[in-house]
Write a protein that binds this DNA or RNA. Structure first.
Length: 114
DNA sequence: ACCTTGACATTGG
DNA sequence: GCCAATGCCAAGG
């Protein structure tokens, strides 16, 4: 597909989110050099090959909300994975002020070679 | 001050 | 054209 390239960048960026921290779809899009493509990040998370170990569950809405509907299996699974690494999830939401990943930009430039 | 809801702009499968 | 793992803003509770 035409966006295979963008997916690679997105997956690469998402993999840099450390355990115990979270990021927003828009944040990952920006850091991947794809401003305004938050929705594409959502797709990318869903399409990420399992063997690539992309931490899709660490990506949330800007508000800290888990994107899946509150009662869904997916929401439950994501919540579980986050809690396993110490992220507090209340009412399907994470407190971004407390858990949002704040990448070191210089380090990021090096890792992603931009 | 902190949700929740709804409308809308936008992007890509 | 339809749908979606978004974001943003306005309005109301």
């Amino acid at each position: 597909m035409a966006n295979e390239d963008n997916y690679q960048r997105i997956w690469k960026t998402a993999k840099l989110i450390p355990a115990g921290k979270v990021a927003s779809y828009g944040q990952i899009a920006d850091l991947s050099g794809l401003p305004g493509r938050a929705r594409l990040v959502g797709k990318a998370m869903g399409y990420a090959p399992k063997d690539m170990q992309v931490p899709w569950f660490r990506v949330l809405r800007t508000s800290g909300q888990i994107s899946f509907p509150k009662g869904s299996d997916m929401a439950a699974k994501q919540k579980g994975l986050l809690q396993e690494e110490g992220v507090v999830v209340l009412n399907n939401r994470v407190k971004m002020a407390e858990f949002q990943w704040q990448p070191d930009l210089a380090e990021l430039l090096f890792s992603l070679e931009y």
